[in-house]
Amino acid sequence: MHSPTEADTCAEELRAALAAHGITLPSLGVDLPTFSARCPARPLIALGNCNVLTAQALTAALRKGAV
């Protein structure tokens, strides 16, 4: 089971890691309906939508990190 604090911390750590690569996903956050819909709670982190340039930057950062 994950607490709201753990989910928020995870989302903020992901936001910071993306920002270190110059990537911003404005709608990144905890998907609250998934947090309360399950027992035990397993909240999802919603990444949201992004434009093509952001998707390309995210792809490049992931590829670079995989090497």
Score class of each variant (00 low, 15 high):
9 T>W: 13
40 P>Y: 02
35 F>P: 00
39 C>S: 13
19 A>I: 00
23 I>H: 00
57 A>N: 04
47 L>T: 11
15 R>A: 14
10 C>Q: 07
1 M>C: 12
64 K>L: 07
35 F>S: 10
33 P>F: 10
27 S>L: 05
15 R>Y: 02
30 V>I: 14
53 L>C: 08
25 L>F: 02
26 P>N: 09
13 E>V: 06
8 D>P: 04
32 L>D: 15
31 D>Y: 14
47 L>H: 12
46 A>D: 13
15 R>W: 00
67 V>K: 12
1 M>Q: 15
17 A>W: 01
28 L>T: 06
32 L>Y: 14
26 P>F: 05
58 L>F: 07
16 A>P: 00
17 A>N: 08
44 L>K: 02
44 L>E: 09
44 L>C: 08
16 A>E: 08
43 P>T: 06
52 V>H: 09
66 A>L: 11
37 A>Y: 09
27 S>N: 02
60 A>F: 04
43 P>K: 07
12 E>A: 08
15 R>Q: 06
17 A>S: 12
25 L>A: 02
15 R>V: 00
29 G>F: 02
30 V>Y: 02
9 T>R: 06
62 L>T: 00
20 A>N: 12
60 A>V: 04
14 L>W: 14
36 S>V: 15
38 R>I: 01
19 A>C: 03
10 C>F: 12
25 L>T: 03
38 R>F: 03
51 N>V: 09
30 V>P: 05
2 H>Q: 14
46 A>I: 01
49 N>Q: 06
19 A>H: 06
35 F>G: 09
30 V>D: 05
51 N>R: 10
11 A>M: 10
31 D>P: 01
16 A>M: 02
65 G>V: 01
57 A>Y: 04
10 C>S: 08
7 A>H: 08
46 A>C: 05
37 A>R: 14
47 L>F: 15
29 G>N: 05
13 E>C: 03
24 T>P: 00
13 E>R: 11
64 K>H: 07
38 R>D: 15
61 A>N: 01
12 E>V: 11
5 T>Q: 11
55 A>H: 15
59 T>K: 14
11 A>W: 01
63 R>F: 05
23 I>C: 02
49 N>F: 10
43 P>L: 10
10 C>V: 11
53 L>R: 10
56 Q>P: 03
7 A>S: 13
7 A>T: 07
37 A>H: 12
64 K>V: 04
4 P>R: 11
6 E>M: 07
45 I>A: 01
61 A>P: 00
49 N>P: 09
18 L>H: 03
57 A>G: 10
48 G>R: 09
